[in-house]
Amino acid sequence: MDVAAILSILEGTIRLSTPLLLACLAGLFSERAGVFDIGLEGKMLIAAFFSAAVAALAGSAWVGLAAGVAAALVLAVIHGLASITFRGNQLIAGVAINFLAAGLTVLVAENWFRLGGRTPSLSGEARFQGLTLPLTETLAGVPLLGPFWGTVISGHALLAYLAFLAVPATWWILYRTRFGLRLRAVGENPAAVDTAGISVVALRYAAVMICGLLCGLAGVYLATALSAGFVKDMSGGRGFIALAALIFAKWRPWSAMGATLLFGFLQSVATRFPRLDLGIVVVPAQFIDALPYLLTVVILAGFVGKAIPPRAGGTAYVKEHG
C-alpha cells in the first residue's frame, strides 16, 4: 500500500464519518435529555430527500439545506409529541418515524420526478462543493504534511467542517452552559429539575429539536455533498451506526467523534478493498460491514468497560399532583 492509497482512505474516512458524526451528536442531545431516539435514520433519510429534491428544483444547495432541515424538524416534532406530550413509547415512535421516512421519500420522489424513487442528479450550485482550505498551496511542497493537508483535511464540503466544529460546541454547551447542565439533569433526574422550577417538557423539546436539526444536516450532507442526489433508502443504516457509535462513546461528545471516525474508517476501508487480504486470512467485506454492530455488542456485553445510558432515558416524565 502506498502513501496515495493511505491518504485516499483517510480522506474517505473524513467524508464517511461526517454524516455519522452529525447523527451521533443528534442522538447525544436527545438521549442526554432522557428521550431515546432510534428514529435518527428516518430523520436523516427525509432530510436527504427533501434537500436533494428542493435543491434540484431551486438550483441552490442552500435552499435544499433549509428544506431538508425543515423536514427533519417536522419528524422531530412528531417524536416530541409522541414521547413527551403524550408520554408514548419512545422506541415505538422511533420505529414509526423510520418507516414513515422510508415510505414517504419514495412516494413523493416518484410523484415529483418519476425516476423510480430518486431525484435528478445535482450539479453546480445545487450541490455543496468541496472547499479548498487556506495554506493548501503554501504547504503543497512540504513532504507528507503537504499532501495530507491538501487531500485529507482540505477539499471537503462546508457541512463536514461544521460537523467537526459541532464536537467542541456540543461539549461546551453540555458542560459549560446552564442549558447544558439542565439538559443533562433532565436525563438523569427530571423530578429534581422540575422541583427547581424548570420545565422538563420545554427542555426535552429543545433537545429533540436540536436532534432534528443535526439529523437534518446529516441527511443534507448525504444527498447534496457526499452523493449528488437522493436514491431510495440512501441512509443505508447510518442512523443505526450512529446509534452504535453513541453507545460506543458512552454518550460523550469527544468520544463520539472518536467512535464515528473509527466507523467511518471501517467504511472507507470496506469501500476501497471489498476483500481485505491480510496475508494470513482474507477478511470478507461482509465482516467489515458488520463490524460496527459487532463492536457495539461487545461493548454492551461489558467486556470493554460498561456503557451506562442516562438514567431517566426512555421514560416520560409525569408531574406529581399537588
Binding site: 409529541l81 403524550f86 408520554r87 415505538i92 420505529v95 422510508a102 412516494l107
Partner: peptide, 23 residues
Amino acid sequence: IPRELIVVIQALVILFTGALDNM
C-alpha cells in the same frame, strides 16, 4: 401508486396504535 404507500400506512399504524396511543 408506488408500493411504498404500504410502508407509510404501516408507519402510521405503528405511530397511532403504539406511540400516540394516549392521544
